[in-house]
Design a binder for these strands. Structure first.
Lengths: 262, 262
DNA sequence: AAGTGGTCTAGACCACGTA
DNA sequence: ACGTGGTCTAGACCACTTC
C-alpha cells in the first residue's frame, strides 16, 4: 500500500477532528498558514486538502474570516400530507406557510407569475400539446430568512381560463390548491418524482448554497378525480436544510418527530 | 462588475460546450495541455476550472485517459409500491430484483447478516431499549453490475426469535417482507424519511462514485396493523443513478414512465 | 496594519493507460 | 515511448475582514 497523498492526509486529519467533535459545527478551523506549518506542506497542498472537505459539504471558506465547520437547521416537509386537503382546514391557508409556522419558525416568499409556453416535460405531464400556453407561478420560499426552496408550478390554460386568479401576480391567500378546491376543482391524486444532484450555478446563487451542498428535485403532478392533470410543480430544495417524509398506509399519525444527527 | 476569474471563465466555457451538446455525454474533453494553450493559463488554473465541473457532477477525470462528460442510466424506484404486498404476488420474490428485471435490466446483491446492538436512532424507531439485540441484514445491490445502493435493515430481537430465518446469513428467496407476511406478520404501514448529502469516503468507495455525486438517504420504518414497528431500513442510493416516485391517492396506475433529461 | 482566503504562475516528478 | 491526469513546491499579488 502506498501512503495516501499528503493533501488527503490533511483532509482526513481535519475530517477526524470534525467527526470527533474536536471541531464542533460552527467553529473556526486553523488557518491555512497554521496547517502549512503543522503538515510541512506548500499552501497549494493544504488548500487541496481543505477543498476535499468543502466538496464533502463539511466546511465553508470565507474570505478574510477563515474556514468554518458547517452547521444546519433542518426543516422537515411531510410530502404525503402537504397540500392534501384531507389533512388541512380551509382556515389554515397556504400549506407551506402553515407547515413552517407550526414548528415555531417564520416563513416568507417571493412570487412571480408569467404566461409562457409549456416545456416538453410539462406538456407531457399535463397532457397538452408542447408549446401550449400555461401559467407559470414561480416562488422562492424562505424559512427564518434563509432561502429554502424554489418552486415553479405550471397550470394548463384551460384551467386558468376557468379560474382566473391562477394568473394573478399576487398571493392567493388561501393557497392555490384550496382556491381551486373551493371552486370545485379537487386534486385528489398526486404523482411525485424525487432526484438529487449538484446545483447549477444559477440555483446555487438563488438558494445561497456553496460547493458541496446538493439539492433535492421534487416534481409533483396533481390530478382531478377523473385523473385529469391539473398542474405540475417543480420544487428545488436545499439538500443541507431539508428532510422529507412520507407516510404510507392508514396509520393516523406518525409517532416520531425527533431530529436525527447527520 | 469585475470580470470573472480565469478559472471560472474556463469552467463556464466548458460547461457551455456540455449543455449545448457540443460535448455530448460520454465524450472526451480536450486535454489539460490543450486548454492551457487555448486559454493561455497555467496548468493549475485550468485544473481549478475543471475541478468546478467535477464538483458539479458534470465530468469525471481518469488518469491516463483524460476527462469525460458524465453519462447516467437512471433507474427509477417506485417507493409507494416497493415492498407493498398489495402490489406484488407471492411468486414475484424479492421486490428489488423484481423491479429491476421488469425493466429489462439485471440485478445482483451481496448480503451480510450480523447480530448487533441497536443504535440510538434504530432503537427509537423500533421502540426498544438502546443497545438491545437486533439482527442487522446488510446488503449491497447492483443494477447491471454497477453498485446502486447499500441497505441496512435492523429487526428487533423479539421478531427474530419468532421467525428465525431473519438471522440466516443467506438470501431469503421470496424476500423478507413476504417471508414475514406468509407467517402472519404483515407490514401495512410505512414511515419514510428522505434526505440528501455528499457521501462519506466509505460510501463513495462502496458505491464507486467520484466527487460531485450526491447520495439519497432513505429511512423506512415498517409497522404491523397494530402499529408495532417491525423493522427499520436505511438505504443509501447513488444520486446520479436514482429516481424515486410516490403515487398518492387512488389512481390505479401511473400513466407516465418516460425518462426525463437531467 | 495585520491576518485571512482567492487567484495565478512556472516549474517538477510520478502513476496510469494506450499503443 | 508517449500522452494523460495526479501530486507537490515556492513563490507572487489581490480582496476581504477584523482590529
Amino acid at each position: 500500500m502506498s501512503p495516501a497523498p499528503l493533501y488527503r492526509q490533511i483532509a482526513d486529519a481535519v475530517r477526524m477532528d470534525i467527526s470527533t467533535g474536536r471541531l464542533p459545527p460552527g467553529s473556526k478551523l486553523p488557518s491555512e498558514r497554521e496547517l502549512i506549518d503543522r503538515f510541512g506542506a506548500a499552501r497549494g497542498t493544504v488548500r487541496a486538502g481543505l477543498n476535499v472537505l468543502i466538496t464533502e459539504g463539511l466546511i465553508t471558506p470565507a474570505q478574510g474570516r477563515g474556514y468554518q465547520v458547517q452547521q444546519h437547521e433542518v426543516f422537515t416537509l411531510d410530502a404525503s400530507r402537504h397540500e392534501n386537503l384531507l389533512f388541512s382546514r380551509p382556515e389554515d391557508g397556504d400549506s407551506f406557510n402553515n407547515d413552517v409556522t407550526q414548528v415555531g419558525r417564520t416563513s416568507s416568499q417571493e412570487l412571480r407569475v408569467e404566461v409562457t409556453e409549456a416545456s416538453a416535460e410539462a406538456a407531457t405531464r399535463l397532457e397538452i400539446p408542447i408549446g401550449d400556453r400555461v401559467v407559470l407561478r414561480y416562488c422562492r420560499y424562505f424559512v427564518d430568512e434563509t432561502p429554502w426552496s424554489i418552486q415553479a408550478t405550471q397550470y394548463p390554460w384551460w384551467l386558468v381560463n376557468a379560474h382566473p386568479r391562477l394568473a394573478d401576480p399576487v398571493d392567493v391567500r388561501e393557497g392555490t390548491t384550496r382556491y381551486l378546491a373551493d371552486r370545485g376543482v379537487k386534486q385528489v391524486d398526486f404523482h411525485d418524482e424525487w432526484s438529487t444532484r449538484m446545483p447549477t450555478p444559477d440555483e446555487a446563487r438563488e438558494l445561497q448554497i456553496g460547493p458541496g451542498v446538493p439539492i433535492l428535485v421534487w416534481v409533483r403532478t396533481g390530478y382531478s378525480p377523473a385523473s385529469q392533470p391539473l398542474r405540475r410543480t417543480v420544487t428545488v430544495l436545499r439538500g443541507d436544510l431539508s428532510r422529507v417524509t412520507y407516510d404510507i398506509g392508514d396509520r393516523k399519525s406518525s409517532p416520531h418527530r425527533e431530529a436525527e444527527g447527520q
